[in-house]
């Protein structure tokens, strides 16, 4: 248990990063690390920032996300109606099975467009 007493290790463990890229058809967010009640506010402000700039077509790429709890899922619930009302959407893509399980438990596939690949999500926005 000594491992967890080391502050530098603890900071490294709780790492969550977001990379944002503007594609011609949508704004894409790449999530990396662990998304929980501690890190979810970071994602919420990143998406809120894009929406405030009028970017309503959003793709969230989960390829490098290792973990999600319901606090992470809640972020998408906050914005989904708003972006759809303005003709946009939040499409979720490239989830690892462990991450998809959590979305599936709560019935999110019924409400959200979840695709296997980023290209698929971008193509849907283009059409």
């Amino acid at each position: 248990m000594q491992l967890f007493e080391d502050t530098s290790v603890r900071i490294a463990m709780s790492k969550f990063t977001i990379e944002q890229k503007t594609h011609t058809t949508a704004e894409v967010f790449y999530l990396n690390g662990f998304l929980d009640a501690h890190t979810a506010p970071q994602l919420e402000s990143a998406i809120a920032g894009a929406i405030s700039e009028g970017k309503n077509k959003i793709v969230v790429n989960f390829n490098n996300l290792e973990y999600i709890s319901s606090a992470g899922l809640g972020v998408f619930m906050v914005f989904i109606e708003e972006v759809r009302a303005e003709g946009g959407d939040i499409k979720l893509t490239a989830m690892k099975p462990k991450v998809f399980t959590v979305f599936d438990l709560l019935g999110f596939p019924m409400l959200f467009d979840i695709t296997d690949t980023e290209d698929e999500a971008l193509t849907k926005f283009a059409s």
């Binding site: 919420e44 899922l73 809640g74 972020v75 619930m77 709560l106 019935g107």
Partner: peptide
């Protein structure tokens, strides 16, 4: 209820269900 929660922009309330 997922659709109701989305309409209300609710981000919490899922933990207990999980």
């Amino acid at each position: 209820n997922l659709r109701e929660y989305a309409a209300q922009h609710r981000k919490g309330g899922f933990g207990v269900h999980i």
